[in-house]
Every structure is written in C-alpha cells, then in structure tokens.
Design a protein around this nucleic acid. Structure first.
Lengths: 136, 136
DNA sequence: CTTGACCTTCCCATGATGGGAACCTCTATA
DNA sequence: TATAGAGGTTCCCATCATGGGAAGGTCAAG
C-alpha cells in the first residue's frame, strides 16, 4: 500500500501522513526500491487511530500520548481517562466562550434594523457606545 | 500617548498594535522626533473598536470591513448586520461541532473504568473497535 | 515509447500571537 | 551629570496544523 492508498483508506491526506512522520507521531514506514513509502495494515490502523483522535479534537501532542498508551498493553485506563476528561473540560470552556459571543451578537443583530439607513447598534457597540434596549 | 499607554488603555498588546499597523488594519500614527509612535484619542478609539470586534470573534479581515463601515457615515446597516449574522452562523456551527465531540468523549469516558486496569473503551474507540454499551 | 497519474523532497504561506536580540531614548535618582 | 532601568524601535523566529506548488523520479496503461 503506497501513501495515496493509505490516505484514501484513512482519510488522512498524504501531506499530513508525511508530516506526522516528520514530527515523529508515526514511525517511518519501509520503502520500495524506488523510495516509495509502503504501509502495512498495522500502520494504516495507527493512522486511523490518529485520524479519530484528531476528529475528536485532541491535539497532535495529546494524540501522541494516547498512541503511546494504546501501544502499551500494561497501561492503566486512569491515565487515558484523565486526558479525555481534561480535553472535555477544554472543549466545554471553548463552547461557553463561543456561546457568550453568540449571545452578545444576537442581541446586537436583533437591535439592528438591517436596512438602508446608517443607524447601526452593532457598530455603536463595537465603538463602545452602550446600546439602548428601549425595553423591547 | 505612546504605544505602551495606548496598549494599557485598550487592552491590545504593543506587539499587536504594531502588527495591526503593519497589515494595514489601522493607519500608521504620527511619530515623535525620536521615532516613537504617538496615538491620539481617535486612534485609541479605533483600537478599542478593533479589540471589541476581536473579542466577539470577528477575524482581523472581518474587523477591517467593520472598521470601514464604521468610518463610512453613509453605509447601510444591512451590510453590517449581514456580516454579524454570518459570523453568528459560523460560531454556531463551531459550537455544534464541539458539542458533538464532547458528547462522544463523555460517552467514552463514562464507559471507561479509569482505574489501574488496562481495559479502556476510550482507546478501543480510537482504535476503531465499536464500544459495547452493555445497556448500562 | 509516451502520457498521465502518482511518488519524492523542499520551500513557502496561512492567522494571530508571543519571544527575544540588538539598539535607541527617556526619566528619575545617586 | 552620570547612570540605571523602563520602555521605545526594527527584525527575525516560533507556534499549530494544514495546504500549495515546483522540480524531478517512477509506474502502469495504451
């Protein structure tokens, strides 16, 4: 299996497979005589693991740790769970931040006529002028 | 007002003020004889506008557009509202993605003992092995 | 044997921010 | 007044994960 096949088998671009190899996230595969990378099913399995972890929002560094734990048959699940739990916390913090932005923006958009006139509460807010809600 | 004062007056780091100037988001201010940047209250006002827009998650590019609209006294509020609405949509999409990650991770973490034993449904999932919920 | 698809390495760009070096300037104090 | 230290200046580099593209080698089908 060459890099293109490994790519379509895992959803990881060839570019990224080479990158993951260059930073040491995955091991360098064997090469053909003509210097093409050759992937075994084991390596494809590893790439799928990486893809899934990245999809779940783990950083490459976290993914490296998880990969290490996965390959260590003796590891305690507590360690894995701690990483996952920490990651859940980080994601939730991010969600709260985004929700707060959305809330503010929705309020502003609601107060904005969105018409041909220049008056615009959104810009007024950005400029630091408090919005007058007029109790609507 | 020099760059340090402008920075603490707006919450934008001196580094970022120079960066915003270099990419043309804000105009280059006057300089003293000794080449120090000098900011007027107008320029500080603009920096506050930028800070607020960035805090609300607008990209620098969107901020540039909003800034242009803010300075154009004739603009229609519809244009501003469209940018804000589009941004709300993008944020909401991001939120949904993150929520989906959190949901999956919570399920996995819930199924994981988090103890000293090696069995770990989180890693099993990353490895592509379907989780057995055992109807808990 | 040619063509086109695919592989290789290498460099560059993104977006927004920070770090730091090397050097200049201002102000307060010994 | 000399000096210290705080803060200004420019310039380059790093981050994180990813894509683009050039230049050149390789493979398979027609």
């Amino acid at each position: 299996m060459n890099i293109g096949e490994a790519s379509s088998a895992t959803g990881v671009s060839a570019k990224m497979i080479r990158y993951y190899e260059s930073i040491g996230l995955i091991r360098a595969p064997l090469r053909t005589e003509s210097n093409y990378r050759v992937y075994s099913s084991d390596e494809v399995h590893t790439l799928r693991f990486v893809k899934r972890a990245r999809t779940l929002g783990f950083s490459v560094e976290e993914t490296a740790t998880l990969l290490g734990l996965w390959q260590d048959k003796e590891r305690a699940s507590a360690e894995v769970k701690a990483i996952a739990t920490g990651h859940i916390g980080a994601l939730e913090t991010k969600i709260v931040e985004l929700q707060s932005m959305v809330k503010t923006l929705k309020h502003l958009a609601h107060c904005c006529g969105g018409d041909e006139r220049p008056n615009c509460p959104i810009l007024d807010d950005l400029a630091g002028e408090a919005i007058k809600t007029k109790g609507h």
